Simulated assay, not measured.
Amino acid sequence: MGSKVKIALVYGGKSGEHEVSLQTAYAVMGQFDFSQYEIIPFYITKQGEWRSGSKLIAPPQNVDQLKLQDAPGVSAMQALFAANPAYQAAEHALAAGAQDTAVISAASAEVTAEVQADGGIDVVFPLLHGTFGEDGTIQGLLEMANIPYVGAGVLASAVGMDKIMMKKIFAQENLPQCVFRYFNRTQWEKDSAYFIMECEVALGYPSFVKPANLGSSVGITKVKNREELIAAVNYAFRYDRKVIVEEFIDAREIEVSVLGNDEVQASVPGEIASSNEFYDYKAKYIDGKSAMIIPAELSAEMTEKIREMAVQAFQAIDGSGLSRVDFFVGREDNHIYINEINTMPGFTPFSMYPLLWKETGLEYKELLKKLIDLAMARHAAKAQLIFTEENAIQS
């Protein structure tokens, strides 16, 4: 590795949270120490086209500069696999017409040395929210490319995005949750009357209808009667093939930031005072009226219990790097319910995740460094694993 750590920031994406990702990337780029890190931007358009920018020597001046409109389009394979010395070596050898294993191996050694001398990409920081970024897809791509990356792995990312699978795992861990029902599009079309009855009997009204795989409260509707339920389900199916319906709980919304790999830390809890009927996309990103109360006004016993549950949830999905875990605390009985885990939470300096760590004693720049170090440590540990019987015999 060179004197500076080379970080590829990947942002944008095809999800409904494209603009949120741009804001996160803009904030992160402005906080890196350019004397220690080299930043290479990778912008993914709303159509899924990758654009690779030149190495940054200073933070961008505005969000529009992140769109890299004049940069050439590249495929994901070109953008990221090309940063892998072994991949470049194979391309080099095949382009030269080499077919003999020894020739390819020699070419591999030559190109690998060149790439490592230049530094390549040391770590990828995926600043992607929602579908195609937070759901295990890009994480799988980076695993194939054998490049270290910040945040949760494939499994944790996929589980953290799929609310149904997440809740099943939380149930296995005996983490208390609100009552929920779920179904896919085919099931709904075949027997919607049954699922309407199930939701009305088990959950009652009001209740919440959500796409199973999405973030930032996109596609979520609070419903108060059967007509609204049917309309909300059809609306949610615009975003995913699976829908989850949850009971309404009159509760405070509490959030905890989690950091680590195998050794996990939890921040102080914070509370969201939503400006809307619930903490939807408008309340999160548009009207600017929602308030964050940090630290949340909770008893010492409840604070510790929520922090313990946050770590338990993080470990239950095999999390790594970072996550934000969200809870409900009943207004009447103070009962704690886990709501969900977010494996790539909002990351501007004004987002809940870094603000909670700031209150806990970890500043934004230090938090970025910690996440990079965690990514490198996880990759190094994984490199020690044996994946084939042949390797096991040779070792």
Rank of each mutant, 00 (worst) to 15 (best):
M1A: 11
G12S: 06
G12Y: 01
S15N: 01
G16E: 05
E17Y: 03
L22A: 04
L22C: 02
Q23L: 10
A25Y: 02
Y26G: 00
I40Y: 12
I44S: 09
T45Y: 03
K46S: 03
S54F: 07
V63I: 15
P85Y: 05
E91H: 06
A96M: 14
A98T: 01
T101W: 07
S105E: 10
A106P: 01
A109C: 01
E110Y: 02
V124L: 05
T131K: 15
I138S: 06
L141T: 11
P148N: 08
A156D: 12
A156I: 13
S157W: 04
M165Y: 09
K168M: 14
K168S: 14
Q172L: 12
P176W: 09
P176N: 09
P176V: 11
R181T: 06
Y182V: 01
N184K: 06
T186C: 12
Q187K: 14
Q187N: 07
E189D: 14
K190Q: 15
D191H: 10
S192L: 03
I196G: 00
C199G: 05
C199V: 13
G204Y: 09
A212D: 10
N213G: 09
V218E: 07
E227T: 13
E228T: 04
V233Y: 00
F237T: 14
R238H: 14
D240Q: 04
R241W: 01
V243A: 07
I249K: 15
D250W: 06
V256M: 09
V258F: 04
V258Q: 10
V258C: 07
V258L: 07
E263M: 06
S267D: 04
P269R: 11
G270A: 09
A273V: 14
N276P: 00
E277G: 03
K282S: 03
I286R: 04
G288T: 04
E308M: 14
E308K: 15
M309K: 11
D318H: 15
G319P: 08
S320W: 11
G321D: 10
V325S: 10
E332I: 02
D333E: 09
I336D: 00
N339A: 05
T343K: 10
S351Q: 08
K358W: 03
K365F: 02
K365Q: 13
L367P: 01
L367G: 08
L371I: 06
L371A: 02
L374W: 00
L374D: 01
A375W: 07
A375P: 08
T388Q: 05
